[in-house]
């Protein structure tokens, strides 16, 4: 299942849609910031620079053509995410450590 429904109905004359991810500063992850149209990958990177980094928002850009993004289905949300709910033992707060024990 691709990300958005419209990708198949885009006309042949329309520049493809790209998703843009920006690293706002060294040490941080790239984060999705939006999308844009571009004829090719190189143009997509340049357009992303011109559209999404006009106010020093980034130091690195990723683009990916929207049709290549595959997304989980919201109908699967219960099956996907709820099973993690009762695995409290995965969290450090589940365990009690005596007060006298340090550095744990």
């Amino acid at each position: 299942m691709t990300l958005f429904k419209n990708l198949d109905c885009m006309s042949q004359k329309e520049w493809p849609l790209w998703e843009v991810f920006i690293r706002s500063k060294q040490g941080l992850d790239h984060k999705h910031v939006g999308s844009l149209h571009a004829a090719d990958a190189e143009m997509a990177v340049q357009n992303a620079r011109d559209v999404y980094t006009r106010r020093l928002e980034g130091v690195s850009i990723w683009v990916v053509e929207s049709k290549h993004v595959h997304a989980s289905n919201p109908d699967d949300a219960a099956a996907f995410y709820e099973p993690a709910n009762d695995k409290v033992y995965r969290h450090p707060t589940f365990y009690t450590v005596p007060d006298s024990i340090k550095h744990m």
Binding site: W15, L36, A38, Q46, D50, R54
Partner: peptide, 11 residues
């Protein structure tokens, strides 16, 4: 010719 290039030329 397209919004993205309007932004580029203004830059």
């Amino acid at each position: 010719p397209i919004l993205e290039q309007d932004l580029a030329m203004a830059n």
